[in-house]
Simulated assay, not measured.
Amino acid sequence: MTKKKILLAEDNSTLSLLLKFRLEKEGYELLIAKDGNEAISFIISENPDLILTDIMMPFVSGLEVISHLRLKLNLDTPVIVFSSAGQEEMVLKAFNLGANDFMAKPFSPNELVIRVKRLLM
């Protein structure tokens, strides 16, 4: 069975490494993008099974990544967005653009694993 590929778009390298370790332990293959531009490149070249993206990133935001995925590439890849507290408006925008789930930072990696599994069933 091939591993499910997850793209993580997150500019915080400490969080990226923690999530990479935790998700690889569950048997997923992880691709890490440091910003939205890298995320879009990975989506085109790697066609991940799931996308985890922070809303606030340098250059291209998580919202722009979702918009590109849904409108330009016309893909229905599941997306979970992360956001720091107090960004309700951004979160609503993310859902309007087609995000499937949302987690407020800081969040539990174990909870993330459960949400990932649910979307990849």
Rank of each mutant, 00 (worst) to 15 (best):
S45V: 05
A33V: 05
P78K: 11
F82W: 13
R70Y: 07
I66S: 11
L31A: 15
V60A: 09
E88P: 00
M90G: 12
S41Q: 10
A99M: 03
S83W: 02
F42D: 15
N100H: 10
T53F: 04
F102T: 05
P106L: 02
K72T: 09
A85H: 01
M103C: 00
V79C: 12
N37Q: 10
I55K: 03
I55E: 08
P78F: 08
V60H: 03
A94G: 05
A104W: 00
L63E: 12
T77K: 11
V91T: 11
I55Y: 07
S45K: 15
F59R: 10
I40V: 14
L71A: 13
P58I: 01
E26P: 13
E29T: 09
V79R: 04
D49V: 10
E46D: 15
S84Y: 00
P48I: 10
K93R: 13
M90D: 15
H68W: 04
N74G: 05
S84W: 01
I55F: 06
F82R: 10
M103D: 05
F59W: 05
Y28Q: 07
K20L: 08
E24S: 06
L73S: 01
I43F: 13
L75T: 13
A85R: 08
E89L: 00
F59H: 12
I51Y: 07
N47H: 12
E89M: 02
L31N: 15
R22H: 13
P48M: 09
L73W: 02
F95N: 03
V60I: 14
I51A: 10
R22I: 00
G36K: 04
V81I: 14
T77A: 14
L52N: 13
N96S: 15
P78A: 14
M56A: 06
A33C: 05
R22A: 14
E46I: 09
K20N: 06
L18Y: 06
N96G: 14
E29L: 12
F21Q: 12
E29V: 01
A94S: 05
